[in-house]
Computed example of a mutant assay.
Amino acid sequence: MMGLIIIGMILVLLAVFLVAIYNNLVQLRQRVQNSWAQVDVQLKRRYDLIPNLVNAVKGYAQHEKSTLETVTQARNMAINAGNLQEQMQAENMLSSALRSLFAVAEAYPELKANTNFLQLQAELSDTESKIAFSRQFYNDTVQKFNTKIELFPNNLVAGMLGFAMVDYFTLQGEPDARQAVKVDF
């Protein structure tokens, strides 16, 4: 009889332990999803600012059509990205296109002095800072989640219950994404 009680207590403790691991993994997964949602909010703000910025530049830089088209195309790709990986790639492309747009704007003193352009540039710069912070928070949260999944005995529970590693938001796919923009006229 005492043996059954001990076995029963061990099973109850094991069940409590497994439930605690599961609940912790669920909590971290929710934090990852929430942190990505925060990145998404800032990206949507960026998408809303870009057409206004492009229109402000159009009036001054008519012959820079390819740069403006690249920014618009990159924005559309980012908006229409189907999954997280596509979103990351599109965002990296959009960041690169925006750097090129601001480099072009440097060649037009009257544009750089335009109040509307300056305001849009400041708003976009503020948004870019918020995106960078949100990306960092997302990556920190992903790191905690991925670490928890890999630690023993969590890895056993995570594997049985379908928890999978999450990708970091990195600069990938564009070899020049880490380079300064070069402008040649």
Rank of each mutant, 00 (worst) to 15 (best):
R75P: 03
N52V: 03
S96I: 11
L98V: 10
D48Y: 02
S35N: 07
G82Q: 15
V26H: 05
V41T: 08
I79C: 09
V19C: 10
T72M: 10
R75C: 04
E64T: 05
Q30Y: 00
A97C: 05
G59I: 13
G82V: 12
I5T: 14
Q33E: 06
V19Q: 10
G8A: 14
E86H: 07
L43V: 05
Y47R: 00
R46N: 01
T67L: 12
N24A: 12
N52M: 06
I5P: 05
I7R: 05
N92W: 01
I10D: 08
V41W: 01
V71Q: 07
V71D: 07
L28Q: 13
I21A: 09
W36G: 02
N92Q: 09
L49M: 03
L94I: 01
R46K: 05
L98Q: 08
M9Y: 05
Q42S: 12
L68C: 02
H63T: 08
L18H: 08
N92P: 09
A15R: 14
W36I: 01
R45A: 11
L68Q: 07
S96T: 11
N80D: 09
D40N: 08
A56Q: 10
V54C: 04
L25M: 13
A78D: 11
L11C: 06
Q42C: 09
W36C: 05
I79L: 15
V71H: 01
Q87H: 10
Q38A: 07
N34K: 13
L25D: 03
L18Y: 10
I7G: 08
N55L: 05
H63M: 12
A81S: 14
A78V: 07
V26F: 00
V39A: 06
A74V: 04
G82H: 13
M88Y: 03
E91I: 03
Q62A: 10
V54Q: 04
A97W: 00
L25P: 02
Q85D: 14
L18E: 04
W36S: 03
L68E: 00
N24S: 14
L98N: 07
S35P: 10
R31H: 05
L53K: 13
H63N: 11
R45S: 15
K58S: 02
G8S: 12
S96W: 01
L84Q: 14
N23V: 02
R75V: 02
G8P: 06
M93S: 10
A56L: 09
D40S: 10
K58M: 06
A37Q: 13
L25F: 02
W36A: 05
N34V: 00
A15Y: 08
I10T: 11
V54A: 09
V39I: 14
F17M: 08
Q62F: 00
E64Q: 14
R31E: 03
V32T: 14
